[in-house]
Every structure is written in C-alpha cells, then in structure tokens.
Amino acid sequence: MSRKYIVFTLISILVGFMIAIQFRAVKEPIVRDTRDTWQLREDLQKEKELELRLLREIRSNEEKIAQYETDRLHGKEQVLKDTLDELKSEAGLTVVKGHGLILTISPIEEEMLLGKPVGKISPDLLKRLLNELNRYGAQYVSIDDHRVINSTVIRDINNETKIDGYSIQSLPIEIKVIAENQQAAELLYKRMQVSKSAEDFFIDHLRLETAKANKEITIPAYEDSIRIMHMEPVKSAEGGSS
C-alpha cells in the first residue's frame, strides 16, 4: 500500500516539475504597448533630444582630440624629437632601408689554385673604394655588416685591417650601399661597373663584384656610441657681439 503511494508521489513530483518548467517556458509577460500617437511623439522627441545631446558631446570630444593632436604636433617637444631623430639618422644611429648595391669582395679562386697567397684587403684600398662610392652618390654604407659613419676609422692594426676596431675576419665580405633612390642606385651601379677599383682590387688578388640589389636592402645602425672629444657647443651670440 505504501509503495503505491510512494510511486504515486514520485510520479506526481515529476509531473509537477514538468508543469512548472512548461509554465516558465510559456509564461513570458507580454507588455502591451498602449501609448497613443501623441505619447509616442513625445517619447520620440525625448529620444531625439538625447541623440542630439550625445552627438554634441561626441563632436566636442572630437574637437578636443584634434586640438590635443595639433598641440602635440606643434609642440616644442615634438620639434625636438623630430630633430633628434633626424640627427640620429644622419649620424648613422638608425637602421636604414633602401635601394642600392651589394659589392662583394672575394679572393680570386683561380689564383688560389695556382698556389698564390690569399689577398688581404688593405685599408687604403677600402678607403679609396669608400671615397669612390661617396663621390658617386652613396648615402649609407656598411662593410661586413658594420655601419660606416663619418667618424669611422679604417686602419691597419698588427697587420689586420680594422674598421672601427672590428677586424675583417674572413673573405668574402659584403659591402652594402644605399643610394638616395632607385635612379641614383642605378647610376651608382653603372659608375661602379666602370670604376678602376675593381682593377686595384685585382692587383691585391681580390675580386670586386658589383651587384644590383633586387629588393630593398637593410643597413644596420652604428653599434657603438659616438664619442665626441674635441667639440664644445657654440655659445649663443650675445646682442651686439656679431
């Protein structure tokens, strides 16, 4: 008898549960919109006003942003920063990308077969080549991935050619040159093809090959800090002294 009741109770719990869930699923309060035209119009008016206010706010904020932007652009700080960047790139402290040439200096293999000594790049030869490149419109140069800047020193130390203290380890080495633009690069290439440098290198048992870079080449930045020893800022001219 009691078992029957328990079964009944369980089933009725289930039924109640199902009914409740069904109720929740179906019972969604539908709020009828009972506003008439006039009320709708008023509500619309309110919303429009809100929209207008928001638009005005957006506009004023945008104006503020623009003002800050111009302030920033014309500010002294920005000018200083621009100048600094300019000077840095001029001094060779930035990575440079552009069109240019890749010169390769390699030993002459045919002579090596004949048993002749492998040539050494002498500093004079390198200086001469750099001068030539500079004369023909090279803007940025790197030798064996070391940036050449105005104060770069190429010299012979203990029978080793060193560029700013870095020795040229093994041949072949690459000299990357970037010209002002693609036209200038083309011009430089033609000039280097007829230059005498190749012959000079040949005398030293080296081969200088000039190749046009198909893509933009990258020249690394100068790695060391530039030490300025004998220089001091010019004192601003006082009134009447100049």
Partner: peptide, 23 residues
Amino acid sequence: WLPVLGLIIGLFFGFMTDIKIPE
C-alpha cells in the same frame, strides 16, 4: 495526501530551478 504534496514539491522545485528549455 502524499501525492498532492509531491505535486506541490515538484512545482516548487520546477519554479526554483533555473532550467529553461528552448522555445
């Protein structure tokens, strides 16, 4: 009265739980 109580309990649990079946 046990089944009626069961029905009420079931209803109570159904409304308390947060089960929602898709429409």
